[in-house]
């Protein structure tokens, strides 16, 4: 299969999965006994005012009609309401939040940099941390370092992010007053402040996630170090550092990259707890708010976007697999 065909088939699969997710989101939402129009009806809410709100939001139509309208908005845009109060959402329209008075596309564009900043920084950190500790652990198997790292990684895997985040804030924010306790500063506004505000969330997320990578790397490393080609590398007189750093690590990174890609993909879709603790308004908190406020359009839009990122991460992992491991060809 050619690379182009591979990409095309993956894209087609992606579209189908996204459609299914959108459909399921709609279905689940309409099975809920709550009426989103009521939340924007005001208080007190009279029946005619409620009907007006429902009509404006398009909730008076059957769910499948709404779903089709949603899909249509994708290609031709949408208009909510009529006359002077109408709101236009240009194609591709992923929906419009009445609560936030913004199109979902715009909301995602605003919130994604926050989540991406958290996720990418933390991911790089935990990858470095996890792989280096995993390698150290494997090379000194059974030593004190190995055993303490193994214990720590068990703790890391099982610790709740919210709690560790709070502890981090109390210790470094309030007690030591070393870092800001929360908030996000855009990179474009001040790179230094951006970094300064992100350090703690990065560290907290990295500490929690690195544990998985420590264990994975350790296991893979132990296995790879027993391979014949490691013996060959040593037999040709390479220094141990090069044997480990080039011959072993490169092979260890193949499975690590798979897990990393998927982890990063799902984190990019929103780091809900981290965002909440550190008062950062990313995709996670947007989604959380949308659920709490029955904001269907945002809910479906952000869910789709997150799903898209995860699927994208899958594709990237597949492709990078081919780059990392010459034995695997795309689509093979």
């Amino acid at each position: 299969m050619t690379f182009a065909r591979f990409v095309l088939s993956r894209l087609a699969g992606m579209v189908i999965v996204l459609l299914a997710i959108a459909l399921i989101s709609y279905l689940i939402f309409y099975l809920l006994p709550a009426n989103p129009a009521q939340l924007s009806c005001g208080r007190p809410c009279t029946p005619d005012r409620l009907a007006q709100a429902e009509a404006f939001m398009g909730l008076d139509k059957p769910w499948w009609a709404q779903f089709l309208t949603f899909l249509g908005g994708f290609f031709v845009g949408r208009t909510f309401g009529v006359g002077g109060t109408a709101i236009h959402c240009d194609a591709p329209c992923f929906g419009y939040s009445f609560r936030l008075s913004e199109s979902v596309t715009q909301l995602i564009a605003e919130r994604a940099p926050v989540t991406f900043s958290i996720a990418i920084g933390a991911a790089v950190l935990w990858l470095l941390l996890g792989v280096s500790t995993g390698v150290a652990s494997a090379l000194r198997r059974g030593s004190l370092i190995d055993r303490s790292l193994t214990t720590l990684s068990v703790a890391g895997v099982s610790a709740p992010a919210y709690l560790v985040g709070l502890l981090g804030i109390f210790l470094f924010g309030f007690t030591l007053n070393m870092v800001p306790v929360g908030g996000y500063v855009p990179l474009t506004q001040s790179p230094v402040q951006w970094l300064w505000h992100l350090i703690l969330p990065w560290i907290v997320l990295a500490l929690l996630n690195a544990a998985i990578y420590t264990r994975l790397t350790r296991g893979e490393m132990l296995e790879v170090m027993g391979e014949d080609y490691i013996r060959t590398a040593r037999a040709k007189g390479l220094r141990e550092g090069r044997v480990v750093g080039r011959h072993a690590l490169r092979n260890v990174l193949i499975p690590v990259a798979t897990v990393f890609g998927l982890d990063l993909g799902s984190l990019l879709g929103g780091a809900i707890l981290t965002e909440k603790v550190f008062a950062m308004q990313g995709l996670g908190s947007l989604l959380l708010d949308a659920v709490g406020n029955l904001d269907l359009q945002v809910l479906v839009g952000v869910t789709l976007f997150s799903a898209f990122l995860i699927i994208l991460a899958n594709v990237v992992v597949d492709i990078s697999y081919g780059l990392l491991d010459p034995r695997v060809k795309a689509g093979g």
């Binding site: 005001g42 005619d48 002077g84 109060t85 709101i87 609560r99």
Partner: peptide, 25 residues
């Protein structure tokens, strides 16, 4: 309708309020 969601006690008290849809048209 697009600006609903606030406190609405006045809407049913004012004469003609229940059928009024705002100034935008």
């Amino acid at each position: 309708p697009q600006l609903s969601g606030g406190l609405s006690y006045h809407k049913s008290l004012l004469v003609g309020g229940s059928s009024y849809g705002g100034p935008y048209d």
